[in-house]
Each structure stands twice: as structure tokens, then as C-alpha cells.
Design a protein around this nucleic acid. Structure first.
Length: 462
RNA sequence: GGCGCGAUAGCAAAGCGGUUAUGCACCGGAUUGCAAAUCCGUUCAGCCCGGUUCGACUCCGGGUCGCGCCUCCA
């Protein structure tokens, strides 16, 4: 039985889908005005893992991850770049798709863009107004009235009176309460706008998700995910909007992934301490990055540093090395069936069912690798490949992984390496170990490690 | 000021009221021409102070420290 830590209840709860056998899940995706950074990578990978495990558990999954393609930052960036908003967002959506694909992230079932759902947002705002929860302020903005929604604060555990809106940011004087948030922003000169009953304008950020989720998943669905920083105010506001408009329960399970940190500080655009995915992929294999993310629990903070990624690479190499040694018997690229009665698979399943405990699941993979190194059992090789595959790992040919060069490095060609290995073999046959070792040293200096096995010499990158 | 999370060996990171987590690194041995990989073995833990218990890293209470949210942020 799958248990999920529900941010709403602040405890692990047994997962019971609304419709038996199927799951509807919504995750807040990117605002596309820049390259994705490591924090985005974590959301992408974590919820991809969740989605995979739900499917592996036999559930029919509808996974929605939205794209915010209209917002203040997008407008500003497009203006700064002197390009249209459409050009800007198209470019960064393409970049996001590339990054996600590199990380082995499956395409969600739906990737709605905010600009395509304005009618639904207007409908929702209208309903909120009819329900007495929205009002048009002096300046023309339509706001949500938090005081009129008694449950406000139930997700974040905050009470309206304790919140100190305006402490750090100037409050819009036209709001009835400082915490009221905007549903519809009145059009400003030079900014994109849509016609509406409240005048030309554009949607507030929070209403986008409420509109897209109910349109694609219904008014009441199973799982809503996102980064921890969205819990308040974004998700709190989504609840207020959706439950306020639909008068029914919105989401059963709220999942929030922990932050990526640098030197113990949250990685964020505002702090400027972020690394983009593509920047990291110049130095590290994308699978190493995926593994780095999954070997930590999704709710824990994840500290980024080069040495941690080096460590992850070494660890992942151990798994691939085990496959390499035993792989002759098992074909690559073949979908492997997991034998769920086998003890390792049982442990794996138990770990994953315990709120997606991927660190424990990874430990099972390493135990399996050790067993394979001892026994060279092809049954265990399929178990390793099959289980790792459910995490989106170990899908490649081991040799290809072990020999893969970072994108930025293309100095030592495979031909050159193989020529030197042949030279070394001749030297070894002459028992000229001095010459053989010199060649090996030369390659080692270039980051190539040689391994003399029973069936000849193989190489990998250090 | 309000609310929340965390503190595990050199580093990273889980479970668990009593029995090896796991990975990297380190040390000893096997293997190897020597290495690498692999195997076997060893060493290295649980912020502090109380309490509960036959027994606590694990439960409870109190500290200390760190982090996050309360502003756009994954």
C-alpha cells in the first residue's frame, strides 16, 4: 500500500485514489523566461519518478504539468530582449523540453499553457465574484478576498492575522485586506491583454493553475505537486480559488519537494546562486544528475556541489560496472520484466511505497549490484535493470555510460584510445611492461582508465 | 514577530526501540606482471541535557545550532 506525505495533513497517509485504479495529478511547472536551473530539474525529476511509480503500481495516471507563458517577468524579459513574448516563451519552452528529455523525464500527458486557458480563468473569476469572494478594486484589478474564505491558511498552517503582508513589500492600497491577491490585472500600456467583463487585462498567476487543473482533471483530483516554495502563497491561493469557486474539495494529496541548495542556502533566481541544467550537463552526464537527485529523498534539502556530483558519478558507475561484467547474457534496450516475488524487488517496492523513498530504493540497487558481481546471475541482472528502469536509470549500454565523455570534452578520440590499447597489448605480449605501463599512464593522465579483464582490455573514463 | 523543517560516521544519505543501511573515500587481504575492476574483511556514527524503557540514533520534554516560508521563486 502506497503512503504519501500529505503537506495538507502534515503526515504520511495511505493513498486512496478518488476513482479506483486511476490517478489525476497536477504539478506546477515552469515560468518560461529563462533556462531551467537545478531547482527546476528537481521538480521535473521528482514528479517524473512519482508518475512512473504510480504507473508501475498499476494505476492509470493522468499527469498534467503546466507552463506559465504570461507573467510580469516574461513581459519584462521580452521587453529587455526586444523580442515578442511569443518568441521568448517558445525559445525557453524548447530549452526546457531539451533539458527534460536529457534528464530522462517523460512527457506529461498534458502540458497546458496559461495563455490558452484565459476563457476558463474568466469563468472562474466570474464564479468567485458571484460567490462573493472576489471584488474589483479602485484601480480596476479584480482581487480575491481572503477574509471571506474561512479555510484560508489551511495548507500552509498560517493564520491571516499572523501573516505580515506588507512587511517586506509595499501593499497595494486598493486592496480590502493586504493579503488579498490579484485574480485579474488591469491592462497597462504596451502589455498584452485580453478583454473581460472587468475590462482589458491579464490573469494573475494563481488563477492560471486553478483554471487549468479543473479544466483537465476536474474540480476534485488526487495529487497536486510543486516546489516547497509554492506552498505559500501559490498553493494556498489555488485552494482558495478552486474551493471558493467550485464549492467542493479541491485536492486530496499535496506533495512538495525540498529545495536544491548551494552552500546551505536555497538556490534561487533572486539569490542569483543558481546553476542551469545545461551548464551542469557540460560537465556531467545527465543520468548522473538524475541519479544525484533521486538518491536523496524528495522532501529533503539537496546540497549541490561538484564534489557531490563526482560522488554520484562514482556510485552510478558501480551499478553500470556490475551490468557490464554480467551483461553479456542480457540484451540491452529490451524492456525487462521485474519479478516482484524476488526479495530485492520486494524491498524496492516497500521503499517506494513508503512515500517514494528513493534513497532506500537505490540502496537495494547497490545490494543487487553486489550480488551480481558475486554470482553473475542473469536473473538478477534483469532485476537490477528492471527496478532501476522504474526510476528512469540504467537504461543505457554500460559501456556507453562508462565511456561517455562530458559534452565539453572531446579531446581524446575513441580511435586514439583504441590504437594506444593495441600498442600496449603488443608491448605486453613482448613482456615490455615498462612500455605498457607508460601507455596506461598516458591514458590515465587523459582521464582514461584501462581494465585488463579475462576477455581483453576495456576502458572507461575516470 | 508568526509558522514549519532539520541535526546520523571524513563526505553524501536512509531505515529502525535490541540484529551489516547504502554509495564515495580510507585501511588490511585475495586477485593482477603491476594496476584497474571485483571479492573478503576492518575502521569510522547518531548536536547537548533530562525522561520513558530491561534496552534509545530511533519515543517524550527542554535547550543549542542550521535552514525555509510569511515578496516573485521549483
Amino acid at each position: 500500500m502506497l503512503k504519501i506525505y500529505n503537506s495538507l495533513a502534515r503526515e504520511k497517509q495511505a493513498f486512496v485514489p478518488i476513482t479506483p485504479g486511476s490517478v489525476r495529478m497536477y504539478v506546477c511547472g515552469m515560468t518560461v523566461y529563462d533556462y531551467c536551473h537545478l531547482g527546476h530539474a528537481r521538480v521535473l525529476v521528482v514528479f517524473d519518478m512519482v508518475q512512473r511509480w504510480l504507473r508501475a503500481s498499476g494505476l492509470h495516471v493522468t499527469y498534467v504539468r503546466n507552463i506559465t507563458d504570461i507573467d510580469d517577468k516574461i513581459i519584462k524579459r521580452a521587453h529587455d530582449n526586444q523580442q515578442s513574448i511569443g518568441e521568448l516563451t517558445a525559445r525557453f519552452i524548447a530549452c526546457m523540453d531539451e533539458d527534460a528529455a536529457a534528464l530522462g523525464v517523460d512527457k506529461p500527458d498534458h502540458e497546458p499553457r496559461a495563455t490558452a486557458y484565459v476563457p476558463q480563468m474568466l469563468e472562474l473569476i466570474g464564479q468567485l465574484e458571484r460567490n462573493g469572494l472576489a471584488y474589483q478594486a479602485a484601480g480596476g484589478d479584480v482581487n480575491f478576498s481572503v477574509r471571506k474564505f474561512p479555510d484560508y491558511g489551511k495548507l500552509s498552517g498560517k493564520s491571516i492575522d499572523d501573516l505580515r503582508a506588507g512587511d517586506r513589500v509595499e501593499v497595494d492600497g486598493a486592496k480590502e485586506d493586504p493579503l488579498d491577491f490579484v485574480l485579474w490585472k488591469t491592462a497597462r500600456e504596451g502589455e498584452p491583454s485580453w478583454p473581460s467583463p472587468w475590462g482589458n487585462g491579464r490573469p494573475g498567476w494563481h488563477i492560471e493553475c486553478s483554471a487549468m487543473s479543473s479544466e483537465l482533471l476536474g474540480k476534485h483530483f488526487d495529487i497536486h505537486g510543486g516546489g516547497q516554495d509554492l506552498q505559500f502563497p501559490h498553493h494556498e491561493n489555488e485552494i482558495a480559488q478552486s474551493e471558493g469557486a467550485h464549492r467542493c474539495h479541491f485536492v486530496n494529496y499535496w506533495m512538495h519537494n525540498g529545495f536544491v541548495r548551494v552552500a546551505d542556502e536555497k538556490m534561487s533566481k533572486s539569490l542569483g546562486n543558481f546553476f542551469t541544467i545545461r551548464e551542469i550537463l557540460k560537465k556531467y552526464d545527465p543520468e548522473v544528475l538524475r541519479f544525484f537527485i533521486l538518491r536523496a529523498h524528495y522532501r529533503s534539502p539537496l546540497n549541490y556541489s561538484d564534489s557531490h556530483l563526482d560522488d554520484a558519478r562514482q556510485a552510478l558507475s558501480r551499478l553500470y560496472t556490475a551490468l557490464k561484467a554480467a551483461d553479456a547474457a542480457v540484451k540491452v534496450e529490451v524492456e525487462v520484466e521485474v519479478d516482484w516475488h524476488e526479495p530485492h524487488a520486494q524491498r524496492f517496492k516497500q521503499a517506494m511505497n513508503d512515500d517514494f523513498n528513493t534513497p532506500e530504493a537505490c540502496a537495494v540497487l547497490f545490494d543487487l549490484a553486489g550480488e551480481i558481481n558475486r554470482q553473475h546471475s542473469s536473473a538478477l541482472v534483469s532485476q537490477l535493470r528492471g527496478l532501476a528502469g522504474l526510476l528512469g536509470l540504467l537504461k543505457r549500454d554500460p559501456q556507453a555510460f562508462l565511456q561517455a565523455a562530458p559534452a565539453s570534452d572531446g579531446e581524446t578520440s575513441v580511435e586514439h584510445i583504441e590504437a594506444l590499447i593495441a600498442d600496449r597489448l603488443t608491448a605486453k605480449q613482448r613482456k615490455d611492461y615498462g612500455a605498457a605501463d607508460r601507455i596506461r599512464g598516458e591514458l590515465q593522465a587523459a582521464g582514461i582508465i584501462l581494465e585488463d579483464g579475462a576477455s581483453g582490455t576495456t576502458w572507461r573514463r575516470s
